[in-house]
Design a binder for these strands. Structure first.
Lengths: 107, 107
DNA sequence: GACAGTCATGTCAGATCTGACATATACTCT
DNA sequence: AGAGTATATGTCAGATCTGACATGACTGTC
């Protein structure tokens, strides 16, 4: 695993317990986590594009600054559901959404 | 709104109350619902492709037959999160996922 | 260095989702 | 008709997520 990828998954609260759990992490679980991180980055990028602070966006989405921060961090306490609804609220089209989801950064 | 689309959104539990709510439904809300329905259909299609019954898939995903049925129906009680995790567990790649998300059926 | 703006992190009550169960409907086969 | 298989729908306790709040860390400005 490349350093860049490691950095992303690091101590974000993802507990990796047993070997069994680790192995599981390398499959569906990691696909899920990496997808979440891409959505998180997509959200941050769009927020910046709109020149909004996390607090501004929170107001717009009727959420809170702390939750926005957690979303952008890909925190385990945030669902794909919330991320996607937020992106939609920011005007992200299906096509853009689809691009965010399939744009792989790692080799 | 075309008949086909109406059929999809019909009495699936989506309550449409006030005019205000209806107007809201035509924006982010409907984008969300239509996305959910595309994922739901994607799930059903993949399940059939694997020749699994809902009960089989439920066992595979450690869920229950009734939840699978609700997922495939795009029931409001099902999150995008669960739908996406299920698709991932069925081996859906990012690219395929992205295709499911951006493939619009309506004109 | 006090202040203001921005973002990160921890906590938690209340909201929402989930698996499981019961039950219903529909179809097929004998 | 009765049995078996597949799917749909309602309910609910327990699990998980969410907004809100508190607080910390980092910047730049005065």
């Amino acid at each position: 695993m490349r350093e860049e990828k490691k950095r992303r998954l690091k101590a974000k609260g993802w507990k990796i317990g047993s070997v069994k759990e680790f192995l599981r992490l390398s499959n569906e679980e990691s696909a899920y986590i990496e997808l979440k991180i891409r959505l998180a980055e997509g959200l941050r990028e769009r927020r910046h594009r709109h020149r909004l602070s996390q607090a501004d966006l929170a107001k717009l989405l009727k959420s809170s600054q702390s939750r926005i921060a957690k979303m952008e961090a890909g925190d385990p306490s945030v669902s794909l559901d919330l991320l996607i609804r937020s992106l939609i609220a920011l005007g992200t089209s299906d096509r853009e959404l689809s691009r965010i989801i399939s744009t792989s950064r790692a080799a």
